[in-house]
Design a protein around this nucleic acid. Structure first.
Lengths: 338, 338
DNA sequence: AATAAATACGAAAACGATTGCGAAATAATT
DNA sequence: AATTATTTCGCAATCGTTTTCGTATTTATT
């Protein structure tokens, strides 16, 4: 219903065979310059658009990349996708985007949809619930190029892009300590998450270096429900042995903390200091402004895309190397910690 | 390289013809129950996944919807897409997402890529630069189902989903007036934008009702550059005849205003009151918290998707009606206006 | 001038699914 | 018992490209 002329009709109009027209449009050396000119001008005149599915079927590639993220309303992921799109668009690729909503079952369904070659490659960040990774293994074994960013899956032998989670977290915790915090809580999403582990390790090592013990009750695993999280944090803040510093491993939980604080009569930063991983552009407009660890999200997206382009355009490219590439974050100190 | 078995191989394994296997999998009445069982179990065993391009080529539909938005790092658009995905996923559709970055030229390129039937339908919100709509007309004439939301294109005879821009803006302006504002500025992106026109009309009518004249210098058309906008607004706030109220027609400009205010010694809400269209979940955490007009973004996305599903699944469905469907917004009063 | 090489194009197969049509085998009808 | 109807399946065309192979024509070589 939608399309216009096809190759055969275009060929008939030119009194040429479809093969010649195809070759002319693909700039084959077998076609004379004059014929090429005629074909191209007629193609433009009739507004010929090649059928992408016929081409995909024949060439066994779709010029499409799938991006799988756990959350769409999230500055970090949005920026990464912008970076991916930037590079991919330059090379004529299209982006299929899927949101798992932090739900493994949804993630599995999405991955199984991608098993049939609909996308030439997949860029993903796993959900916070993901611990069984059999679906990802199957995908990788099928030979679908797959790369991870941020929330990676170390069990799959492929390239992963992350930020310097450990060092940033170490520095962030150290910053809180330097500002006088003695009791720092660590907020996280899933315990299995790669970023949780690394960031927690940095946090623990910074505490250790300062000769402090990590209080078990200060390791807060949050849920997907915002209200529940706010209450959880509020309870922590109202408890006997309340923390005087909060290190939030993800943006969302820093905001929950702000909400929780509003339900107490604690003041930031006097009674409680907060630092968080976050790519919010408006961290500076919060009350008080939030000290952040910001990932180079756009760059991460670009790097993912560039790597895939190399992999997909070179004819006999080797597999994606099993390596982790680190792009450093930047800490911006604002009022919530000083 | 990616895919596993195909229909022919599956048929060979079963000692059946491809046509029989195809019909069995599609639950045709022509196939006996036992054969169907055998086929289905073997298909599962071999993990058969039909080739989407062969199917698309044959059936002339892609099970894919394209979504075109002007900005990805934007709560409103992200929520709309979540709504679209929610419904589309239930019906087995995939989402191609394109960001125009508020650039008409990019928009035109994207639309021309969608002329070849890669997507079965398109849901879009035009860029703020879009005034010439010939590219959209061509798309519509080609017969590609096209619907608009938020930033619509009234010249194209199809269904559009918007919020009650006029009424909300009228009420918002009235609210500022009731709070004592006498000189209210209106911040906008493109003058040609449908939402700009409607929201401006609501603003003007509210002023008129209050017997106030709209000062021409209070109609601020902003650019795509954040820093430029901040300076523009700061200059306005430092001018002789500065406004005492700001009505921002889009979220982004409210944030620019907050930044601009920080560069003056004005206080919100004492010296300047602000209201803005915005879908930020953290409007309440700003300093001071921001009074907002919030669109039912997720619902808008769902409604777009539901309409398209009806259009695409019914065999001989009529064209999309040339009508505007309105879903009302909600005003939440916070500290920036009281 | 005879042969070899280069140029420019067409016929037809392939990609992997769906489907109209035909044809066996079985069941039902007269 | 002969005919018709029903069930169940296979053959082959089709969707719109790309590409292998073959071939006619022109150009270069000896």
């Amino acid at each position: 219903m939608a399309s216009g002329v096809n190759l055969k009709e275009l060929a008939a109009e030119l009194k040429l065979s479809p093969s010649t027209v195809s070759r002319a449009l693909n700039d084959s050396y077998e076609i004379s310059v004059e014929t090429k000119k005629k074909v191209i001008s007629m193609a433009e005149k009739l507004n010929y658009q090649p059928n992408p599915f016929a081409r995909s079927l024949r060439e066994n590639k779709s010029k499409t990349i799938a991006v799988v993220i756990p959350e769409r309303i999230n500055n970090f992921f949005a920026q990464v996708i912008d970076g991916i799109e930037e590079i991919m668009q330059q090379h004529g690729y299209h982006l299929l985007i899927y949101n798992t909503h932090e739900d493994v079952d949804k993630e599995k369904k999405i991955i199984s949809l991608l098993l049939n070659g609909r996308a030439d490659a997949i860029v993903m960040s796993v959900s916070s619930q993901t611990s069984d990774v059999s679906h990802l293994e199957r995908l990788h074994e099928r030979g679908v190029p797959l790369i991870f960013f941020d929330r990676i899956c170390s069990g799959i032998p492929t390239t992963k892009f992350i930020t310097n989670d450990y060092e940033s977290s170490f520095d962030a915790t150290k910053h809180l300590l330097q500002q006088g915090c003695k009791k720092i809580a660590f907020l996280m999403l899933g315990k299995e998450l790669s970023i949780t582990k690394e960031r927690h390790r940095g946090y623990l090592d910074a505490l250790k270096e300062a000769g402090l013990e990590a209080d078990a009750s200060f390791n807060i695993t949050c849920s997907q429900n915002e209200e529940t999280n706010i209450e959880l944090i509020r309870d922590l803040l109202l408890s006997e042995n309340r923390p005087d510093g909060i290190f939030s491993s993800v943006e969302k939980l820093a905001l929950c903390t702000y909400h929780a604080v509003k339900r107490t009569n604690l003041r930031i930063p006097e009674d409680l200091k907060i630092i968080s991983f976050s790519n919010m552009s408006i961290a500076g407009l919060l009350n008080p402004s939030l000290t952040t660890i910001t990932q180079p999200a756009f760059t991460i997206g670009e790097e993912c895309a560039k790597l895939l382009i190399r992999k997909l355009t070179r004819p006999k490219q080797p597999d994606l190397l099993n390596q982790v590439i680190t792009v450093p974050s930047k800490i911006t100190i604002r009022s919530s910690t000083v």
